[in-house]
Amino acid sequence: MTSWKKAQSRAAPWFLLPALALLAMFVVWPMLRAFGWSFTNADLLAPEQARWSGLDNYSDLLADPRFRRAFGNTALFALLVVPIQTVLAFLLALWVNRPEPAWRWLRAAFFLPVIVSMPVLAVLWTILYQPAHGGETGLVNAALSLVGLPAQAWLRDPHLALPAIAAMSIWQGVGLQMMVFLAGLQGVSRELLDAARIDGATAGQRVRHIVVPALRNTIVFVITVTTILAFRIFVQPYLMTRGGPGNSTLTVVQSIYEITFLSQNLGRACAATLLFLLLVGGLTLLQRRFTREERT
């Protein structure tokens, strides 16, 4: 028994080696390179001519109104998306958490947008959001006019474009979180729920005092993942508004893309990416501090 265990622990490094080597080559080494470049004026087309520039890239970025706007927009997007998407996913999961086979269809329907390619959805929603022109109008505005509300130029109005994209993103992503909650709901004790029902607890009380505490770890996971995904927003605004109107839907990832491939300023791009990593990483840690997982 012990010799078998010894052999196992002798063998372990060999099994780890391929994975560690690949991780080092494709994750650790590039990150170290990026960290190094972020203190230089490296040009994407000629990085070997890079010269040391200290903290210039960082201080420039923090002072750049466009980059700050991108951070503000992205934070606002996350602020809109994370709470709404989490609550909505939770409510949807409670709703479709039924054993009868018919509910499977509804679960599939809510999950469908997750597996459709994002560019396709972006084009689709651009059409849905279309303002009225001549006899044609987008479905969203048509629906608004049915209930007597005025039509809006959704993606063209600097105040509406970001919320409109957030609404679309929530619709797209909510299915995934719903699935995670559904999986969590299977672990909630039936006996406890039945006992509570017999004791006269209302549905609301059962959710508040039994389901939510039981799903605590799931909720923490969903909030964390949704936050990270929300900060990485890029495709929807890039395809639907190109960051406009003005810079009202410019995101951090889009501005990193621009610094890398349009200005081709590798040093700055690395600095921007590391700042972004720092922010998202810091936020995630902060969240976990306040919503600590329960370990049993």
């Binding site: 078998w4 063998a11 060999w14 099994f15 080696l17």
Partner: peptide, 8 residues
């Protein structure tokens, strides 16, 4: 026990 070196 498995011989890991050749596999690796």
């Amino acid at each position: 026990s498995v011989r890991p070196a050749p596999i690796s």
